[in-house]
């Protein structure tokens, strides 16, 4: 799919936006799905559409079309977290007996940014946009794969070694390189570093 014309988007050209919505939908949906699929899958589509609506409001503040996908991801993430929080609050605040059980509550809390908030939560959207753009440039795919295996799929060193066909020692080295790259993002973005330090306290 071709990248839409940024100028046409800012001018509100309906054709350009049609193309942009097709282009950005997978991003919006995938991010929202990450947060909501387990707890309120019926809301995923609605929140993803809402993310694209919000993007329309913000497009005038962007400088290039390259920022669209990262910003879409950021907006979708925030809206999904908000929806999850509201859903959780409604169930607990509504006095319903069939509210989330203990196990569900634990999972929702784990899915939500932990108090005082995810280090990404307070980042300005421009910072996150840059962060996502840089992360795609800085992290080689093989290192990102290992990071995903460890932090997202929660595989052990041994499990990653078997899955990827690499020595266990290499798993550690790749993880270390990946986290070093992530630390460099923090150094390049004082806002991120500040939130990170607050989070680490």
């Amino acid at each position: 799919m071709n990248t839409p014309s940024f100028k046409a988007l800012q001018q509100g050209d309906p054709h350009a936006w049609d193309d942009a919505f097709d282009w950005l939908w997978p991003t919006a949906f995938a991010v929202v799905n990450l947060k909501l699929a387990r707890f309120c899958p019926e809301d995923v589509e609605d929140v993803a559409i809402q993310a694209l609506e919000t993007l329309v409001e913000k497009v005038a503040t962007l400088k290039s079309v390259d920022e669209l996908k990262p910003l879409t991801a950021r907006i979708a993430h925030n809206l999904a977290v908000s929806r999850l929080r509201k859903k959780y609050a409604d169930k607990h605040g509504g006095g319903k007996i069939d509210s989330l059980n203990a196990m569900e509550s634990k999972e929702v809390n784990r899915s939500l940014p932990s108090s005082p908030g995810s280090p990404l939560d307070e980042l300005h959207e421009n910072d996150l946009t840059k962060l996502l753009t840089e992360s795609q440039e800085d992290l080689k795919h093989e290192i990102r794969d290992v990071l995903n295996d460890f932090f997202i799929s929660k595989l052990t060193y041994d499990g990653i070694s078997q899955k990827r066909g690499i020595p266990i020692g290499t798993v550690g080295v790749m993880l270390k390189r990946g986290l070093e790259a992530i630390r460099q993002w923090g150094k390049r973005h004082p806002g991120l570093m500040k939130e990170l330090e607050a989070f680490a306290r």
Partner: peptide, 29 residues
């Protein structure tokens, strides 16, 4: 620990940002 927290937050966003699958529902257009 802080780096790991960042990684847990950013990695899914990175993957999702590059997602290609899925089609916008026509009713949303």
């Amino acid at each position: 620990k802080a780096d790991a927290s960042i990684a847990k937050e950013v990695l899914p966003l990175m993957e999702a940002t590059e997602a290609q699958a899925g089609k916008l529902p026509e009713y949303a257009r």
